[in-house]
Design a binder for these strands. Structure first.
Lengths: 191, 191, 191, 191
DNA sequence: TATGAATGAGACTTCATTCAT
DNA sequence: TATGAATGAAGTCTCATTCAT
């Protein structure tokens, strides 16, 4: 029998890789990075421990890939037309997308929040994270400048904190958190 | 020398217990619960591993005790005169105390935030936590009612989220976070 | 194109087998048997892991084949005309060939020395080795008898030891070992 | 009950450490470093795997300690009166001690020989080894100078090679190797 | 014939906890 | 009360070998 084509191998690899990443994301987010063993991931993903190392060179590589992947897909939520200016409509779009994101990708956001409290994990992705946060902050600062704020930096930090706080409470209490009301309140406050 | 009285022994025990807890808190907060070994704690506290087990029955018991202790000392920050009503001045006092707390007990607060993202740790203290949060929330709701809000519950949740978001950002970026400005902004917004 | 004949297939097989053995020999000698994975060999030889098992039934089979091959090609260095008698000239030829061999087939000789220090590898080739060494020794003994030595056995053992010692030092310190001088010294001593 | 005294602990530690090192030496020497697992050592030494790490921080640390220990005890075999000059009697003493050593500490010498063919192990102790070998060589060179050799360096290298070759053959064939005869032959040749 | 995904045993190492003294 | 040696389970990772295609 002839061997699989390169294409077939590629497909198998892609599918497996995604399965591993999804499983790992869920476990990392709910149990924590340290408490999630490679073994647990492998069992839940229905593969052998050894195979995981065929796709990721280490546990660190795995979480890094997951987080970087997530950060990549965040690009585009703010300043959609990339003109460096954030209009009122764009901010509203951003806020709405933020709520969508935490509802649809709860696990990823849990992981993201976790990061900041696990130094040894944070260190792995710090550089990328700082760049991204800095980009976002600059946008918000410009927005408040344009709105005529007399302390746009503090305003930006405050908005950042508010959003994270909301995300945080949502994670902690998903079932009863009044997402829609809070979203409207926020839009009224800022847009 | 006369033999120590029972009382003296008790005092030594208490002092040592506190020393262990302080050491452990610092390590748990800075290195993480899993990355902190009992050995490290014992060495840093200047005692033997064995003795530590004389004071705490397990690593879990240790962190649980630390967290409960912290929760206990939180009681009293809100509604100081226990009349179930929160005046504008009392809210301001509460907000100021909140900022004091995160600045002075950074380690404790790091640990507190960590909690929410690790099921198995959260489970340890969940019950106590729910009661405490509920109490706080009720107070805030009443405050907004008294202020004539048309949706006091959402307002309360929002304030809770804002505070946690601020704490979160402060923890994540202690060095450059503009504590004072944010505090003033908050007081202006809410009081 | 006409289909390959059986003969052509056989040639391809032989060539590939040799390529695998050469690659493996180099890696075994420079990195060590245990530190050399089948994977590394396959990659360096430009084939797949699976195919390697088409040529060798196991890693042990591979090293065994390499070593036996080497032992085979050693035959003929001594007593070239197979008359069971070693003349002075033939000994000189043997000594010179020995030096040629360790210089030109350094990898093989490294492997050969390694053998003696790992029971489980030695066991694989022990029998063959004993036969070969015995043959060599008998020759040397006869040589010293013919020279009129009063303890030809000890003389033979001594020469064997000296040669191995030289090989050993050459391997351990290839860069600065004075091959030529030592060779001349040896010939002067024994021929 | 009162705890063990510091002295008692020290004694336990010394005894255990020696037992582990002896066991490990034997296994490393006969099976090879890579083929000797920590597990095997622990079982043979009658302790748990974990305990071994109480005494040695890693497998590398273990072999390093063993080898350094051996090198330390070698000091003194050559130039016993430390005057930098090697007399004919001192050389004879050295040769005799060499034979004593390989007979009494066979395992250590096996390990020592092994070293040169396992790059990744050699690297661990290389520095110390080079210093020691250099010292020995300098002595031998001076000896041959004093004897009026016209190429003392080559003579020294040759003697070194001869000794190692003898050691090597002795290891490979301990049972039948004519130690005494070879020793006498050597003394006659060199002293 | 040829590929490389997949397995599973086993390697090194860490650490919470126990226990003799 | 106090010590730290000792254990054993579990964690990360490697790799010879198999097998579907």
């Amino acid at each position: 029998m002839s061997p699989r084509t390169e294409r077939q191998f590629e497909e198998i690899r892609e599918a497996r890789k995604k399965a591993i990443m999804d499983t790992a994301l869920e476990l990392f987010a709910t149990e924590g990075f340290d408490k999630t063993s490679i073994s647990k991931i492998a069992v839940k993903a229905g593969i052998s421990k050894g195979l995981l190392y065929n796709y990721f060179s280490s546990k660190e590589d795995l979480i890094k890939t997951i987080i970087f992947n997530g950060l990549d897909s965040l690009t585009g939520y703010i300043d959609p037309n990339h003109d460096g200016v954030l209009t009122r409509d764009e901010l509203q779009y951003f806020i709405e997308e933020f709520f969508n994101a935490i509802e649809k990708n709860e696990h990823y956001w849990r992981l993201y929040f976790t990061l900041f409290f696990q130094r040894h994990v944070l260190k792995l992705v710090e550089k990328r994270l700082i760049v991204m946060i800095h980009t976002y902050m600059k946008m918000l600062v410009r927005y408040f400048e344009a709105k005529g704020s007399d302390d746009p930096e503090t305003d930006a930090i405050m908005l950042g904190a508010v959003l994270d706080g909301i995300g945080f409470h949502f994670m902690a209490n998903t079932a009863t958190f009044p997402v829609e009301k809070i979203k409207q309140k926020l839009i009224k406050m800022y847009c």
